[in-house]
Design a protein around this nucleic acid. Sequence first.
DNA 1: TGTCAATACGAGTAATTACTCATATTATTG
DNA 2: CAATAATATGAGTAATTACTCGTATTGACA
Lengths: 217, 217
Amino acid sequence: MPSKCSLKPRKLPQQERSRLTVEAILEATTHILTEKGYDKTNTNLIAERAGVSIGSLYQYFPNKKSLIVALREEHSKEIAELLAAKFNHLFDSPPEIAIPELVKAVIAVHAINPRLHQVLSEEIPYSERSQQQMQKTDEQITELLRAYLERWRERFALFDRDRLRPQNIEMTIFIINRTVESLCHSAVIEHPQFVSDSQFEQEVSNLLMSYLIKKPD
Amino acid sequence: MPSKCSLKPRKLPQQERSRLTVEAILEATTHILTEKGYDKTNTNLIAERAGVSIGSLYQYFPNKKSLIVALREEHSKEIAELLAAKFNHLFDSPPEIAIPELVKAVIAVHAINPRLHQVLSEEIPYSERSQQQMQKTDEQITELLRAYLERWRERFALFDRDRLRPQNIEMTIFIINRTVESLCHSAVIEHPQFVSDSQFEQEVSNLLMSYLIKKPD
DNA sequence: TGTCAATACGAGTAATTACTCATATTATTG
DNA sequence: CAATAATATGAGTAATTACTCGTATTGACA
């Protein structure tokens, strides 16, 4: 069972034909991963489902890991773009408006393909993850959050010096980020009924707002 | 590669000798899992590290899955007992006291063996998890939380009818549960510096308290 | 001390699977 | 229409690994 480490394809698709092949392979990977879970997913099965030979698969993906990484790239990009758009759109809206909208967006993002999201974050072995890639995605979100917090700094308690709040913005960003991510993630998977009406997004918004927003004295 | 489904051992250890064997096997499993990650963990390696033969291993664990399940059982039990003790001890303490203490306890629990915790929750394939087992642990914590919330119901906003709060206690419990769990989990792994002083536990407590506790009008 | 059950051993097996490579087919280009 | 580059093929291979089973050793108990 060889297992090299390069992630770049040995050949880039140049003709339309091969672009379709690559697309079919990625679609098949998603399908098998979500249907069977990581440990029942193998490259031969992926090739079969994609309707291409195993040889073709290895023309464009040097190893199994590169397949997973490519898939996560697609997925992360989709998420990052959607959230960036939302943040942009809501940049000048006050927290009471923006926070529920953003929570709604995160839920929507998780609802796109919950099972894929779950497999990627709960089943893929560490050796098959690109730490660099995952960190990059995380930092993108972090920066969006930071920008918004600073745009509305006079409304947020965490910037007050006199409060027993953290000087440490990083910690607050981390807390918000993980809280929303994990709540939306597990709600979509474990409690789809929560997500179907708007009660859940309201509650998560309340959690964030009561924590973040300065109270009038 | 056979893979049966029974999780019960084919033989229960009866003499002291075999009890030591079982212990050594579980210790070795923990060690290899945390050192190498799930995908580099195999039963032959575990037996070697435990200093027993592969045959002995399969006397007490009918398959690989049963090893993982036994390990998680140990781990969950430890956590559940520790938290149950804390909840008991703090049952009559008001939220302002109890919440920070409980958060501290959850952090401590995650700090026992963060890497094992991580592997168990982020790398073990679904086919190797006992859904029933995991659900049971979750329910235990849920019940502890519910009991505490009801003990101090007059202090918690979620019981007010007139507020735009959920009638749905289940949802609130879910939110609290997941929030604390995931924050402590990722903090211990990604930001050990957060955990080393008490700032992080204070922040998480603030998050919970500002969400849960009724404000004086 | 002898007998039987409990425990330990580990070489071997069968199944799985990531990946290669020699060859064939299809598109492009001059 | 060559000639060459791009793409496709899939049988085959080597490595890994969960698990078996026949045999040996140890302990309990009469």
